[in-house]
């Protein structure tokens, strides 16, 4: 099995966010909100870091 770098980021962020959402909040509504926040931060952080690396290289 092979995945692209971006697919790996999406899969990692998805699974990790689900576990963080369930374990770090007590109410189902807050679990979904926190999970979505974690997902956005994981993916957004990776994209931002990628651009920083691109800028450093060029």
């Amino acid at each position: 099995m092979t995945v692209s770098h971006f697919s790996a980021v999406l899969l990692f962020a998805l699974f990790t966010s689900i576990v963080f959402g369930i374990t770090q909040r007590a109410e189902p509504r807050m679990m979904i909100r926190f999970g979505a926040l974690c997902f956005a931060l994981f993916v957004g952080g990776t994209v931002a870091a990628s651009w920083v690396m691109w800028i450093i290289k060029h």
Binding site: V3, L11, F12, F15, T16, V19, I22
Partner: peptide
């Protein structure tokens, strides 16, 4: 949790 953790391990 089962799906997420087992899925991650399997991948």
């Amino acid at each position: 949790l089962l799906v997420s953790i087992v899925g991650m391990f399997a991948i």
